[in-house]
């Protein structure tokens, strides 16, 4: 006889209650097996009954297995949909809608992280702050739609010119920030200069025949500053110098 397990926990007692009929059949069969009746017909009848019950139980077990698998499949798909939706939300949360670049909120986190990492490992980090020259005039003289197209084109030039490991974010209106991790100021300046030249060389007439766009860039790699915010402020200061120095230039 099978030892009845201790039913000290409620779930276990529940399961046994669920299988009450099946347990009853087993107990009955065990009684007959322990003390078989001499009447062969009675044994055959009991055996026949047991076979029926066994068949029923087997069918149930197979059904429950398949139904359980389907429920799990349904859960899995739901989970998949959910994580897909989450990923999309996360992507949207850090992306600038117009340009597809990273947004300012994401940049703030990324900059702090890059600054702390650079300091911790005594590695260089160059930050560049750039601004489209006379952007207000683009909006005024052409249209806001043209302005948006310019911002999208500048964003693409920035993204295509920097290294894959660099971060490019839209900081605000027509301001963009680039982070060059592991790059000392000379290297950062070189990329910034390439970016400036690429913007100048771009065929802006594809957007409007009379359109010409340049950008100014301020660069800083001074990690002796107190924090990431100060480093960005320094780059902004240099951008201001570039603007007052005649625009379409890189300053550090």
């Amino acid at each position: 006889m099978i030892e009845k397990r201790k039913t000290d926990s409620k779930p276990e007692a529940d399961i046994e209650a669920m299988f009450k009929e099946e347990i009853g059949v087993l107990q009955q069969a065990e009684v007959i097996a322990a003390n078989p009746p001499s009447d062969k017909t009675a044994v055959a009848r009991a055996f026949q009954n047991l076979t029926e019950e066994y068949k029923n139980l087997l069918q149930q077990a197979m059904k429950m297995t398949r139904i359980g698998d389907m429920a799990q499949e349904k859960l899995r798909r739901t989970q998949e949909d959910l994580s897909g939706a989450n990923e999309k939300l996360e992507r949207q949360a850090k992306t600038d809608g117009l340009t597809g670049l990273l947004n300012r909120r994401y940049l703030d986190t990324a900059l702090t992280k890059a600054f702390d990492t650079a300091r911790e490992h005594s590695r260089p980090l160059t930050v560049a702050m750039s601004d489209v020259d006379f952007f207000k005039k683009v909006n005024d003289n052409f249209s806001h739609q043209t302005g948006d197209e310019v911002l999208r084109a500048v964003a693409k030039i920035l993204r295509d010119t920097v290294r894959d490991s660099d971060t490019v974010a839209r900081y605000g209106g027509e301001e963009f920030v680039m982070l060059f991790p592991d790059l000392p100021v000379e290297g950062g300046l070189a990329i910034a200069e390439r970016v400036r030249a690429a913007v100048q060389a771009y065929d802006w007439s594809t957007i409007h025949p009379d359109l010409k766009i340049t950008i100014s860039i301020g660069v800083s790699a001074d990690l002796s500053l107190a924090n990431a915010e100060k480093l960005l402020a320094k780059a902004d200061e240099k951008l201001y110098e570039a603007k007052h120095g005649g625009r379409n230039q890189v300053r550090h």
Partner: peptide, 16 residues
């Protein structure tokens, strides 16, 4: 729309 394994056994008991 959704049920667990224990419920499926109870449904089978009802069906029986």
């Amino acid at each position: 729309s959704y049920f667990n394994t224990s419920s499926s056994k109870c449904i089978l008991n009802i069906l029986r």
